[in-house]
């Protein structure tokens, strides 16, 4: 079951920008669908440079963080690169508390994320 589209996909040069559509990434079913759509970018489409845009995201649970960690592993395994951008301060705190800001490359906005990518 692929479910609703949960990501807006945009191509800028050789970079794929995936913007989360949901404000709340909490519901387990949603997280599963989002995870599958994210993994599909690497595993099915073979995309190598991916920016995840969080500008719509207001809430994020630890289950969603788990999917992001798996995504990071998949991208690294495919020798690709992953960047995160436009994470609002409340959500950034969630990354900082769990020290995932050390694992992910995080940028203030899309332009900065695209720079030198």
């Amino acid at each position: 079951m692929s479910g609703h589209r949960r990501l807006d996909i945009e191509e800028v040069g050789d970079v794929t920008i995936a913007r989360f559509i949901d404000k709340k990434i909490l519901d387990e079913g949603n997280i599963q669908v989002i995870g599958n759509q994210l993994f599909g970018l690497v595993e099915d489409d073979g995309r190598q440079k991916i920016v995840l845009d969080f500008s719509n995201v207001e809430y994020l649970s630890s289950a969603a963080l788990g999917k992001l960690i798996t995504m990071d592993k998949k991208v690294k395994a495919a020798k690709g690169k992953l960047r995160l951008c436009s994470v609002r301060p409340d959500i950034y705190e969630v990354f900082a508390i769990t020290k995932l800001n050390k694992l992910f490359n995080m940028f203030d906005n899309q332009e900065e994320a695209l720079e030198g990518f």
Binding site: S61, S62, G66, I69, T98, L100, K102
Partner: peptide
């Protein structure tokens, strides 16, 4: 502790840590 380097890429433990924080 999910923030230890060896656990950073593993799932689990983050929910409790977020509640504490």
């Amino acid at each position: 502790d999910p923030t230890e380097d060896e656990n950073l890429e593993k799932p689990g433990g983050r929910g409790i840590m977020l509640m504490r924080s």
